[in-house]
């Protein structure tokens, strides 16, 4: 599709998107190494989605994160900050030199995402169930302003536990907010256990459809499928909000972490960070194995 306004960040093709996804993963691993911990499993899992969102779907200006005509990306899952920082670094909104400050005192990259700290971080997340409601208000505000900007809100499967998410889902359909796109990362992990064990979430797509949304479900580590889904979401003009449900694999691209027992907070030992980086490089050095390459 053609964007409504000129992009500074040109829409990328599949090959370029794969390259961005690789680099987003790499930035995240480097940040994780700085603190010796972090939600790198989630970051590796969601990197392909962020690559398509930031380098294909959204209108942004890297040097002006508050540009009025930008699309707004709301991270309600504040603990995914490491992933969004990686995407913002890749997009040039944040300097790569900030990586070494990740999670440190007075850093612009705190462990949980907060609007006041970080350029490009639109909202303070972390208290789950806030993002979609804020998105409803912003989408209503954009329509008041006759703006063509869009709201993207990244939620997790665990966040579907929160009743407020469904208050917002009902409202978005009621107000016909076709400028609002929700993205649900389904990695089947939340704090205590597998998400499906904590509180069953299926059938996800049927739930959103019943609430009046257009629902698309894709392999969230398949870049070509994600491109199709985001293009479909942005092209639709049926007066419905759209949700892209993305099944992702935590640790994607790093076999060491893909194969580790999945937990909300994947353990990485001190000597494993370099191994992880090497495995990531190897994954992308061999295109037939690379994350997101299956259908490209």
């Amino acid at each position: 599709m053609q964007p409504a306004t000129p992009r500074v960040i040109a829409p990328a093709d599949i090959t370029a998107l794969r390259r961005h996804a690789y680099r987003i993963r790499r930035h995240a691993l480097l940040m994780g190494e700085v603190q010796g911990q972090g939600y790198v499993g989630q970051a590796l899992g969601i990197a392909d989605v962020l690559a398509v969102a930031y380098f294909r779907a959204m209108n942004l200006r890297a040097d002006d994160p508050q540009w009025e005509e930008r699309d707004r990306f709301l991270l309600s899952i504040g603990h995914y900050a490491i992933a969004l920082y990686a995407a913002l670094i890749e997009a040039g909104v944040i300097s790569e030199s900030e990586i070494e400050n990740y999670g440190s005192d007075d850093s612009m990259l705190p462990m949980s995402g907060m609007a006041a700290y970080t350029p490009g971080m639109e909202i303070t997340g972390g208290s789950l169930g806030h993002g979609l409601g804020i998105g409803v208000g912003m989408a209503l505000g954009l329509k008041r302003k006759r703006s063509r900007s869009r709201i993207f809100n990244l939620l997790s499967d665990g966040e579907l536990n929160e009743g407020s998410t469904w208050e917002a889902a009902a409202s978005a359909a009621h107000w016909k907010l076709d400028n609002l796109v929700a993205i649900v990362d389904v990695n089947d992990q939340q704090a205590d256990d597998k998400s499906s064990s904590v509180l069953g979430y299926e059938p996800i797509a049927d739930k959103w459809i019943a609430f009046g949304w257009t629902a698309l479900r894709v392999d969230g580590n398949d870049i070509a499928a994600l491109v199709d889904a985001f293009d479909t979401a942005l092209d639709s003009a049926d007066g419905k909000p759209c949700v892209i449900i993305c099944d992702t694999l935590m640790g994607r691209g790093v076999p060491l972490l893909e194969n580790r027992d999945k937990t909300h907070f994947i353990r990485v030992d001190e000597d494993e960070w370099r191994v992880a980086l090497k495995q990531l490089d190897d994954t992308y050095a061999n295109p037939s194995d690379a994350a997101g390459s299956e259908h490209s």
Partner: peptide
């Protein structure tokens, strides 16, 4: 939260 979103805009 929608009030917050409106104020953000």
């Amino acid at each position: 939260s929608a009030g917050a979103g409106m104020a953000r805009e």
